[in-house]
Amino acid sequence: MAERRSNFGRSNSRRVDRVAGVIVSVAALSIVALLGWVVVATLRAGLGEIDLPFLTTAPTRAGRGGGIGPLIVSTLLVLAIAMLAATPIALLAAIRLAERSRQDRPGAVVARSGLIVLAAVPSIVFGLFGNALFCQALGMGYSILAGGLTLGCMILPFMTVTAERALRDLPDDWRLGAAALGIGRLSYLWRIELPAAAPALGSALALGIGRSLAETAALLFTSGYVMRVPTSLFDSGRTLSVHVYDLAMNVPGGASRASATACVLIGLMVLIDGTVVASLARIGAGRSAPIRRDASRDRASRIGDRS
């Protein structure tokens, strides 16, 4: 970056440059400002409504009174099922797809196209699909389980692609070194590859969590609207995002409660994301400290080579 910048310079079009610079920086800053406005307006409208009873009690009068306690429980259950379903599959798929030597086999091509198309499917279509498969064909009805599995399908491609990139970013030399030392595929994976990639794998988890918590359309007809605390995974349970929608659209006078629920939703996203990223970063630092130091030396010598 620094190198590239120094190449620009004393030219006779300096004034044009400066005007263009002002225009693009205004565009860039206004994007952040506009999106920030959306979040800040929601926080300002909702934060005042939040207190301990709001977080713990059940809603009354369709959500106009009471709190959102049961909905937090439902949200966390749906999230847990989605992550339990998607994480192992995404990780295994990423391991397979990150193998450089086997990129052009038909299986890999099919897998990759599948991931692309799955990532493209609109979330409302996942809702229709989840309703047809999980709720009706498999007889789960409107339930936490059906909603969680639908979300699991939805976040799978994003988690896979992010995890694959995390594994691919490790130096190829390590694999060759491990092979030369006679280390098996499984021990290499468990002792070297996964710990070293843990912080980056954390961002795959965080992505899945963020998408799951934010999702509404896929849950309307899979996990449903019921506001009680679910007693089993086959109960319907309303998530926070569905509650925001319902309060804002269908409950007259529900706007301030909708904002408050949205604030809790945003807070939950930040909290869980932060915890996951921080703890996986610690695993990475603890289990593979010497490896990481080697990696940075590697990089340093490569940069040296280039100059």
């Binding site: 995404a90 295994l92 798929a93 099919v110 279509v125 498969l133």
Partner: peptide, 23 residues
């Protein structure tokens, strides 16, 4: 691990087919 990971990699494609079929 090779078998499981190949299977997992094909899951996304399988889900796409399931979605198309059910819809």
């Amino acid at each position: 691990i090779e078998f499981a990971s190949t299977l997992a990699a094909l899951t996304a494609a399988a889900i796409v087919l399931l979605i198309l079929a059910f819809i």
